[in-house]
């Protein structure tokens, strides 16, 4: 379909997003979205995650600028919300810790002086949710990650080939990550 389409919100565990350092963008178009390609070949612009908000801090100098840390079974995501994300910023300023939160947002990357790529999330929305929703997300994300791991192993499409080439993805370690995440659900039986 020509013209506008909505970016699907990818499901990626924190550990995998942290390992990501390949960004791409269509340079000819200043409005082109920026993507992060993860080691299992998820091409992420928008992301959906549910986890536990464990820290929050107003790091702004003039105006409020909130940083939140949201953890999942494999690590944590950093979420930044300032004046251009008023709803999310308000949520962060008001909510009590810890809390299960669902975050929809865009990934943004920052390259440090020594070449590390840090990926954070600019939220479009943050809502408080229940534990069940968090568990559903873990299951959902595990399923989609496994599917991507399989695609990388088979070098099935463009993204998985590119990921394999760039990261020399050790799929075993990501299988272990998924297993860990799934087992965290098991324990609650």
């Amino acid at each position: 379909m020509p013209g506008f389409f909505r970016e699907a919100a990818r499901r990626v565990f924190a550990q995998e997003l942290k390992d990501s350092n390949l960004t791409s963008r269509d340079e000819s178009d200043q409005y082109a979205p920026q993507y992060v390609l993860t080691p299992t070949g998820a091409k992420v612009n928008r992301i959906f995650l549910v986890g536990t908000l464990i820290e929050k801090e107003d790091i702004g100098t003039d105006s409020e600028y909130w940083r939140g840390r949201v953890s999942d079974p494999t690590g944590s995501f950093l979420v930044y919300a300032g004046q251009y994300q008023p709803e999310a910023a308000q949520f962060l300023s008001e909510c009590e810790l810890p809390a299960f939160v669902a975050v929809v947002g865009k990934t943004s990357t920052y390259t440090t002086d020594d070449g590390n790529v840090l990926t954070s999330i600019r939220p479009e929305s943050i809502q408080q949710v229940d534990e069940l929703t968090r568990n559903l997300w873990v299951l959902d994300t595990a399923k989609q990650t496994l599917e991507r791991i399989r695609a990388v192993e088979a070098e099935e499409d463009q993204n998985s080939k590119l990921a394999k080439e760039h990261y020399s993805t050790d799929t075993d370690s990501y299988r272990t990550m998924v297993k860990k995440a799934l087992e965290s659900l098991e324990e609650r039986k």
């Binding site: 069940l132 568990n135 559903l136 299951l139 595990a142 399923k143 496994l146 399989r150 075993d172 299988r175 272990t176 998924v178 297993k179 799934l182 087992e183 659900l185 098991e186 039986k189």
Partner: peptide, 25 residues
């Protein structure tokens, strides 16, 4: 609204992950 976690699916995925993991290990 989805109101329960599909335990069977969870188990199934864990086993699937195991079996796929083993030959490579």
């Amino acid at each position: 609204q989805k109101t329960s976690l599909d335990r069977e699916k969870l188990d199934e995925m864990l086993t699937l992950n195991e079996t796929l993991n083993k030959p490579e290990v």
